[in-house]
Amino acid sequence: MAERMHTTPLPVTPEPKGWQKVKKFLSSRFRSGAWRARKALIPAATSAIAAVAAYAFAAIVFGHSEPYFAATSALISLGFGRDPHIRKALEVAIGVTLGILVGDALQALLGQGYWQGVIVVFVTILLARFIDSGVIFTTQMSIQAVLVVLLPIPVEGPLSRSVDAVIGGVIAIAITMLTPVSFRKEAVAGMRELFTSITGTLRELSSALEEQDSRSGWVALIEARGLQSKIDSVRAEISQADQTATYSPTQRSTRQDLQEMSRTLEKTDLAVRSLRIIARRVITVIDEFDTRSPKGDDLERMSVWFSDAADAVGILGRSVAEPVAPGRHRSLSVARNALGAATTKLTPRNLGAHTLHGEALVMMCRPMMVDFIEATGSDHHEASSYLPNV
């Protein structure tokens, strides 16, 4: 008679009640608030400096008595967190300035009062929608216009507020260009994660072939289909970083790195498109495998090849993350050799493919590997030279 297994029940942690629950909530809120405050140190300092600098510049250089719109324009254009999109900062600055300018013009034409404020906001919103479809652009223009028409006219005259808005916007854009947030690290991290996922998919296909398990093949296919969203995310990060490097004099040295990274990503995108088709073919090869047939496909050899391909792609992923160009180029050369070594084995005979499905699988792997080799910086002719004759 089998012995019964006696297990000790896990201790149950009682739910906090009363003051303990409040204390836990306050502690959690304090920790999250402290984390947000630490992250906001640099953006807060930058915003404060921009606002006061715009106010001081308008007051000292132009002699404006109360240049509040210079400070508000700088804060709004800069945005909390100092969004490094030059184009976005420029659009916000233009929206703020136009709102103030429209308010000044209509106030000079209609005078000041409540019904004038209604007309100003109405006209400003229509003008904003005509210029741009963005909701933020429309909101900024209308807010500035209504403030202008309801506040007293400064002693310097109505157009002085438009000048203040221009000053604040220019200072915000200058700060954005001179002290941008570099997105290269985010792009590199995204590339590293992408290649980790590609390597994992190739290893999943290797495991599926080794274990003759089509369910693992389906898992790999799902993973391969999910790679496209990661590619699109990395593409957006590279585009963001390239925009910053284009306009910022402090980031232009990274443009060459970003161009190389973009080329690697585009070739990897092509390889991943092939990988999705290959994953589907692996499932078919496993489902059609017949252990009784002496002329069947050698799934073990195919499994080993996919494992070798995963190792080579893993080297490529680590190469992209190299921070210095000389080291990255040397690492890409190592990746090229590893990918080339795997590519030279791609013939049906070398991988033991004897059926129609097996041969089709091997032939599908050839363009994928060419794309991966081109991702290391090789041209198409050099990458294709690794392919063996069939």
Rank of each mutant, 00 (worst) to 15 (best):
I119Y: 04
V96A: 15
T139A: 11
K295D: 04
A174W: 14
V166Y: 00
D371F: 04
M261H: 10
F57G: 10
M141T: 02
M191A: 05
S331G: 07
G190V: 08
P323S: 03
I167S: 05
F289I: 01
L332V: 02
Y55L: 14
I153M: 10
I171N: 04
A93D: 01
R273N: 11
K39P: 04
L26R: 08
V320Q: 10
S197T: 01
S293N: 15
S206F: 13
V146C: 06
D371Y: 05
A310D: 09
T72F: 03
E374C: 03
V285W: 13
K88R: 15
M5G: 10
S162P: 07
V102H: 08
F80Y: 14
S384C: 03
P11A: 13
H380C: 07
P43E: 08
P67V: 07
L106F: 09
D308S: 14
E193L: 08
V166S: 00
G200E: 01
R161L: 11
A172L: 09
I231H: 13
A56W: 02
A360C: 06
T196D: 11
I76N: 04
E288I: 07
V22T: 11
I119C: 12
F122R: 07
R263Y: 15
K88S: 11
L361Q: 06
L351G: 09
L299I: 00
P294L: 08
R203A: 01
E260V: 09
R349F: 06
H354Q: 06
A53W: 11
R192C: 07
H329A: 13
L98E: 03
A48W: 05
E382T: 06
H380M: 05
E237R: 07
I119A: 11
V96Y: 10
K267P: 02
V146T: 14
S73W: 04
L41A: 12
R29E: 08
G200A: 03
V118N: 05
P180A: 09
G79R: 09
A145K: 07
R273T: 10
R87Y: 04
V166W: 02
S262H: 12
R292W: 00
R129M: 01
S303K: 01
S214E: 14
V120T: 04
A54M: 08
M1P: 02
V120D: 07
V166F: 10
M302T: 10
V219T: 06
V102D: 05
G95Q: 09
T254Q: 05
K88L: 03
L387E: 08
P249R: 15
R161F: 12
G352F: 02
L299P: 04
L90T: 15
A279E: 13
F289A: 11
E359N: 11
A360K: 04
S214C: 09
T344Y: 06
Q259I: 00
H380N: 12
A145Y: 04
L159Q: 13
G111A: 12
T13A: 13
P158L: 15
A50L: 03
V181Q: 03
G352E: 08
T201V: 10
S333F: 01
G18E: 10
A44R: 14
S378L: 00
E3P: 02
L275K: 10
I278S: 05
T250Q: 12
M368I: 02
P180V: 02
S162V: 02
T199M: 02
S253C: 03
A89F: 01
E15W: 14
E66I: 15
T343P: 03
K39S: 12
L101S: 13
A353Y: 06
S384N: 12
M364R: 09
